[in-house]
Amino acid sequence: MSKILIIAEHLNGQLNQSTAKCVSCASKIAGASIDIVVLAADPAPIAAQAAAIAGVSRVRTIANAANANAIAAIYAPQVVAIASDYTHVFGASTTVGKDLMPRIAALLGVSQLSDIMAADDAHTFKRPIYAGNAIVTVKAPAGQIVVATVRAASFAAAGGGGNATIEAAAVAVALPTHTRYVNLQQGGGDRPDLQTARIVVSGGRALGSADAFKLIYDFADKLKAGVGASRAAVDSGYAPNDMQVGQTGKIIAPELYVAVGISGAIQHLTGIKDAGTIVAINKDAEAPIFEVADIGLVADLFKAVPEIMAAL
């Protein structure tokens, strides 16, 4: 039977939604029992949120002042200390998970699977390669612990209403002091988080300037949406890096994705392929974005977007 450990991702006392998506992935493995581990300075409030996720048997907490920030070199040995109780260790394919999970795998002497988008069975998974141009089925060896990052956008969040037991894990390992947290500059402000927003509006190169990109923010605010950008728009300095949607940026799955002035390079399309409904507004009728859009509007964005905003 599979015993799966999921590493909780959290910030400022709030559990990240990607953790419930990892639970959803783990629950695809027949007969799996699922635990969550919360590493934090004060794990209690986060553990309470994790315990409410449906399908979780147990939440284990590792309280330590050194766990205030998710530093891979500090988290990894603590996870390894409890890993022998499990057949699988999963983390989300977020920057936190991508930073941490390979370090855990290397300490355990095993390979790591990145960005799994389907779990066929306990040792068989699907993942994208070549920026999403191919999907490979990968088999992990049966006798080894499976360490993986889960492509959160490929899974719906597991529901609430769970009532897992919460217990402290006794972990006594020496933690390194060679890596120190300095600060975090958060972007985004009051807008919904790009990775969890129900609606996302993204702008591309056609905006033409950082000033013009304000139209995207205004449009998003009207829709109560998160804001994204294509790599071209970010590279041109119209939008900050953390807004980039695509294979090398954020992979998202909102209910509604509105691509404004985005041509639709494959890297970008990989980042939105799990979106519910894709709307494309672009004046070039030949743009690849129209191949994947559920609703396309061939129009000048500078005319169409204000017109939509006026009609809402």
């Binding site: 060679h178 890596t179 975090l184 972007g187 985004g188 953390d242």
Partner: peptide, 12 residues
Amino acid sequence: EVDVGLETLEVD
């Protein structure tokens, strides 16, 4: 470059 913005670390 992290999901929520920019994080700075100091490493030996």
